[in-house]
Structures are given as structure tokens and as C-alpha cells.
Design a protein around this nucleic acid. Structure first.
Length: 591
RNA sequence: GCUCCCUUAGCUCAGCCGGAUAGAGCAACUGCCUUCUAAGCAGUCGGUCGUUGGUUCGAAUCCAACAGGGAGCGCCA
């Protein structure tokens, strides 16, 4: 519908220029109609011009309509309320637009006019720690955004900024040397669960034991100097964690390239030098930092941001230095030198890091690393909460491991399915049950997350996400399954659509109109990066389809209605499948 | 103390550049399986959009203040 909407807008602009005496180029404020009874589009531009033109808004609307030539696209425009211009597309225009989309692999969604190099930084678990629910949102949202951007034709680099460096390795290696030296010797001697336990012990000893503390610090220094034994131990730890992470990514169907913090080690001194020569660096209490807003004073009252500490008093670097090095590397390279040459860099992290990103982005800007045409965006998301409205925890009070959470979702999906099979007296083999349970479980977890507005906290509930009715993955999957059911019973979804497509039944016409909005939703998603908008669309599409399915016969209809309706079914299935795919969710033919 | 985010139906949430009578889902209640169809469809019930001001043709949406909830705030990430 974007093409049609652009054409309408252009004609409204012309009509306003012809009919009205305006100083500036007019904005017709063309949007989708707020209610179906208002038609397909509404133009709200007349009302805002009332004061400027010293005319009643309805009269302005009338003048616009008098100069408007839309006869080839729309029914005669209607003026309503205080001065809305309501536009209803002619059925044949909708039918033609549908015919163009059926069978098109992109379903009428154009590629972005300008292809960008985009870095999506997401997931980012820490080595020697389990992935937990906190990583879930970043992973799911980041994957979805990366898929969408790639579909729109952008060159997407998915980066996993794993926590693979820092003082914690000193503790961990020291602890393992003393308690489980075999872990540092051979691959697979310990699994991630053991590492987590060792990490916990190490942390405790670090806090209590002076000798251990000293040993750990020495170990960090050795590691940083590149001592072969320490490096090998470190590499082994990383590899153990990496295997575990990969199991989760494989299960979620998420592709991501690891480029951890250690990647930037060699570039940290360069960051300090660059900031220094840009005149941004101030030494304060022995630490080298950049103060916000160009102020070199200590934090003033009312200054929103604390200073960004780039190099600690002891000469060591911290995460801000690493993040700055990463920004610099990602934005550099357009000249053929080192770097990713990204034009858009997207960070999918929790909302609590907003001020950190605001600060480092500001430093990057003032350092001149961001050239025109490049942007850095923090894409924040809220906490995952339990049913009690507090941060999600196990009954014992521990953080919930991601693998356990996924297992439980699949297990519940399976129990649901088996109960249903028993109720309906259906027989299915184990492979079918396992596949459906896995698909539904993953879909439910992902969809529940993506369908919430990203920015607000999100209440996690297996019961709600696995519910068969409402705005849930199972509901959408079922709508898709129903279409596949038609296909199985003899409705060739691949047959060519008749020309013209007939949209006689009211439910068929509504479905057609809804299908045409897909491209607008994706373009908006690319700009706003809010996956819940796509979820809402797919849910409403499923509802509209179910209404159609309930009331309009397809296979039993006479030609040419039969093949017209089959074409609608096909486009509905393809739209649901592609939409879900962009969310990272797989479909089923039967469930 | 300072900064940011949030507050919409009993519950979970949408609400796009300010636009028409504020929308879903769940829960509750009422109907609909001789049909390609019930993991579905139709309907009923449910609102001080946290409060008070302001901006304007028009505010859930923008601004200010206040209340409540959450997060962050110099050498952890």
C-alpha cells in the first residue's frame, strides 16, 4: 500500500497547492484510516490550516477535495467531522494490488532505497557465566531487528560483544589452578555449570582472602602480558562457554558472530591517544576521563552525566574504553582502512545502560568519529519480571537459566499437545510431537517477548505465552495451519490467481485490505525498531483471516470465487510465514 | 540529592506525526460444530488514560508541577 499511499499524498499536495494560498509546501497529513468505516486513508491536513487561512476547516477540506483528482484510485472523497478527508480505495484498485503481490517472494515489500552497512550488537553474555533471562530479550530482539534489516536489503553484521576479558579471569584462573587444574589443561574437562560454581567460589575467596586477591591480580597481569599458560587457560574457558552459548543459539535459530571485548584490547591505547589529541581527556584523581558537555570541571550539580572514565588510576582500562574502541572500530573503515565501515550501529541492551550509552556516544561524537550519514542507536528494553512484578527468579531465588526456561516452555507445549491429542483421540508419532512442542515452545517464548513494547518491563508467564487464544504464538501458528489444511484438502495454493481477483464477500475484502498494509508495517519497523508493531499486525491479520475462514467457503465456492479466495489464502499464509520468519519464528503445517 | 524510564478496563498490554465515540487479549457471562473450520467465530459486561495546571480548532499523546513504581549515578560490565 506504500505505492498507493505515496500517489495519494502527491495528489493531495497538488490539490492543496492549486486550491489554497499557502506560503509553505503543504502537508496533507495522510494516514491510514483510524476506523474501517472511514475508508482506507484519511487526510487531516485541512484542520491545521484554519488559522493561517482564516477559513473554516471544513471549507478548506472542501476546497482541497474540489481540486482533487483521484477518480482512478478512490471513491469520491468524503469530508467528515471537523474537517477530515476520508478516502476509500476502489475495490478494483485493491484487487489489482493483491494480484501483484500473490506469488511475489517479497510480497510487495521493496528493498530500502539506500542500502546501509548496519551493525547490530546484541545478546552479549559473559564467559564463565550461564546465559539467563536478561540475555533473552537482547538475543530475541536483536535477532529480529537483524532479520528485518537484512530483508530490507541492508548489509547486516550481527555482533556478539561477549564479556571475555577483565579482572574476573584472574580470579577464575587462580581458583582453577588450585582446585581443578585439569580444567585448564584439556578441553571439556569441566562444563559451564562447573565453571559457574568455580566462579562463585572464586568471587567469595577474592572478597575474603588477601592472599587469593594478590594471586588473582598477578594472574590478570600475566594474562594481559600474554603469558602462554594464562592465555591457554583463558582460551579454554572461553571455548567451554562458547560451546554452551552455541547450543542456545542453535536452539533459538539465532546466527551471530562472536567478537568479544578482548578483540579491542590492542586498540585501547589508540582510543586514549585519539581522545587526548582531540583535547577531550582530563586527568582527575589519577584517572583519565572525558567530562560531559565539554565541561572540564568535576561533575557540576545538574550535569546529567558522570564523566566517562577511559583509563583507571592504576593504568587499566574499563568497559567504557572497550565500548569506545568498539564504536571507533565499527564506524571506521569506509576509506578502506581497518574497521567495519558501519553507517548505522544498533545496541540492543537493557534500559539501565541508557546513560552509559548516551555518555559514550557523546564522547564519540565530540571525538569526531561519527561522520555525517552515520548513526549510533541504543535500543533499550525493560526488565523481565516474574508474576509478582519483581525481577524474574527461581523459587530458590536464583536467576533463571535460559536453557531451563526454554526446556520448560517446550515441556509445557508438549503437555498441552498431548492432552489435546488424547481429548481428540488423535494419533501422532513421537517425531511429530517433539517437533511441534519444540516449535511452539520456542515460538511462544519469542513471541511473548517481541509482542510487548520493548521499552517497558515485561511480565513473563508461561501460561499466557502458551495460551491458545489471544495475541500469542500458538494463535498465529494455528491460523497458518488452517491455511495449510485447505492446501492439503485440494486447494492448490500455488495456482495462479484469476484476473481480476474477486473480493465480493465482505470478509474477503477486509482480508485483502489488511494484507496490503504489510509493507507499511515493515518500513515503520525499520525506522522505529519496535517489533511489537509487527506482532500486532500479524495478530490482527490472523484475526481477520479467521473471520474470513469462518464465514467464507473457499474449496466449495464456485469459480472464479474459488481461485480468488485461494489466492487470498496463499497471500495470507505467505504474509504470516514471512512475518513470523522476520520475528525469528518458524511455522508448522500441522499442529 | 541528581538524571532517565514508566503509570491506560479486575489482570496482561496496544495506542504510530496531536485527530473523529480510547482499543485488544485474558477473566466472567451468552450463543455457534450435518459445512474446507471450534487451538476457531459472533456477542455482552468492563475506563477519572496517576493528579493538577498549561499549550490549541482538537491532548492518553506535547509542556510544567506533584504523587506512585522502576532503573542509573568515577575508576564493575
Amino acid at each position: 500500500m506504500l505505492a498507493i499511499s505515496r500517489a495519494l499524498r502527491q495528489r493531495l499536495v497538488s490539490a492543496m497547492e492549486e486550491g489554497l494560498d499557502l506560503a509553505e509546501p503543504p502537508d496533507p497529513q495522510l494516514t491510514a484510516a483510524s476506523k474501517p468505516e472511514f475508508g482506507d486513508f484519511q487526510a487531516n491536513g485541512a484542520m491545521g490550516l484554519a488559522r493561517q487561512l482564516q477559513q473554516a476547516p471544513r471549507q478548506i477540506a472542501q476546497t482541497i477535495v474540489d481540486h482533487l483528482d483521484l477518480a482512478d484510485l478512490c471513491e469520491p472523497p468524503r469530508i467528515a467531522g471537523p474537517g477530515f478527508i476520508n478516502l476509500t480505495l476502489k475495490p478494483e484498485v485493491i484487487a489489482r494490488a493483491i494480484a501483484e503481490r500473490v506469488g511475489d517472494p517479497r510480497l510487495g515489500v521493496a528493498e530500502a532505497p539506500v542500502r546501509q552497512r548496519v551493525v547490530v550488537d546484541f545478546s552479549s553474555p559473559n564467559i564463565a557465566k550461564e546465559m539467563h533471562v536478561g540475555h533473552l530479550r537482547s538475543t530475541i530482539i536483536g535477532d529480529c531487528l537483524a532479520r528485518l534489516l537484512a530483508f530490507r536489503g541492508h548489509d547486516v553484521l550481527r555482533l556478539n560483544h561477549v564479556g571475555d576479558w577483565g579482572t574476573q579471569f584472574g580470579m577464575l584462573i587462580t581458583q582453577l589452578k588450585q582446585v581443578a587444574p585439569q580444567a585448564l589443561d584439556a578441553a571439556d574437562a569441566v562444563d559451564l555449570g562447573d565453571l559457574v560454581a568455580f566462579y562463585r567460589q572464586a568471587k567469595q575467596r577474592f572478597d575474603e582472602d588477601e592472599t587469593f586477591r594478590t594471586q588473582s591480580r598477578e594472574e590478570v597481569v600475566k594474562l594481559q602480558r600474554g603469558d602462554p599458560f594464562s592465555r591457554r587457560a583463558w582460551a579454554l574457558l572461553c571455548s567451554q562457554s562458547r560451546q554452551e552459548f552455541q547450543r542456545i543459539y542453535d536452539r533459538l535459530g539465532v546466527g551471530i558472530e562472536e567478537r568479544g571485548e578482548s578483540f579491542y584490547n590492542a586498540r585501547l591505547t589508540g582510543v586514549v591517544e585519539a581522545l587526548d589529541s582531540a583535547g577531550l581527556l582530563v586527568t582527575d584523581d589519577g584517572a583519565r576521563c572525558v567530562f560531559p558537555d565539554g565541561s572540564s570541571d568535576k561533575r557540576k550539580q545538574g550535569s546529567a552525566l558522570p564523566p566517562v572514565i577511559v583509563q583507571k588510576r592504576d593504568g587499566g582500562f574499563n568497559y567504557a574504553a572497550t565500548d569506545l574502541a568498539a564504536i571507533r572500530y565499527r564506524l571506521a573503515g569506509a576509506d578502506g582502512g581497518e574497521g567495519d565501515a558501519a553507517e548505522r550501529v544498533i545496541y540492543v541492551t537493557d534500559a539501565g545502560q541508557a546513560s552509559h550509552f548516551e555518555a559514550v556516544f557523546q564522547v564519540a561524537r565530540r571525538a569526531g568519529w561519527i561522520t555525517p550519514g552515520q548513526s549510533l542507536e541504543h535500543v533499550p528494553f525493560g526488565l523481565v519480571q516474574g508474576a509478582d512484578g519483581r525481577k524474574l527468579k527461581t523459587r530458590a531465588g536464583d536467576t533463571v537459566r535460559l536453557r531451563d526456561l526454554l526446556d520448560q516452555a517446550v515441556q509445557r507445549a508438549r503437555a498441552d499437545l498431548e492432552r489435546r491429542l488424547a481429548d481428540e483421540g488423535r494419533q501422532e508419532d513421537e517425531a511429530f510431537i517433539a517437533h511441534v512442542a519444540e516449535t511452539v515452545g520456542m515460538a511462544a517464548v519469542k513471541y511473548a517477548d517481541l509482542s510487548q513494547n520493548r521499552i517497558t518491563d515485561y511480565q513473563f508467564s508461561f501460561d499466557r505465552m502458551l495460551a491458545l487464544q489471544g495475541n500469542t504464538a500458538p494463535y498465529l501458528l494455528y491460523a497458518y495451519v488452517r491455511i495449510q489444511g485447505i492446501a492439503r484438502r485440494g486447494g492448490a495454493l500455488t495456482a495462479t490467481a484469476p484476473d481480476p481477483i474477486r473480493l465480493g464477500a465482505a470478509e474477503a475484502f477486509s482480508l485483502a485490505r489488511q494484507l496490503l498494509h504489510f509493507d507499511e508495517v515493515l518500513v515503520e519497523l525499520e525506522r522505529e525498531l519496535l517489533p511489537n508493531r509487527l506482532c500486532t499486525y500479524l495478530f490482527e491479520l490472523s484475526q481477520t483471516f479467521n473471520r474470513f475462514y469462518d464465514r467464507v467457503p473457499v474449496l466449495k465456492a464456485e469459480e472464479p470465487d474459488r481461485s480468488s479466495r485461494l489466492a487470498l489464502c496463499r497471500l495470507s499464509a505467505d504474509t504470516l510465514k514471512l512475518g513470523l520468519e522476520l520475528l525469528g519464528i518458524g511455522t508448522l503445517d500441522r499442529m
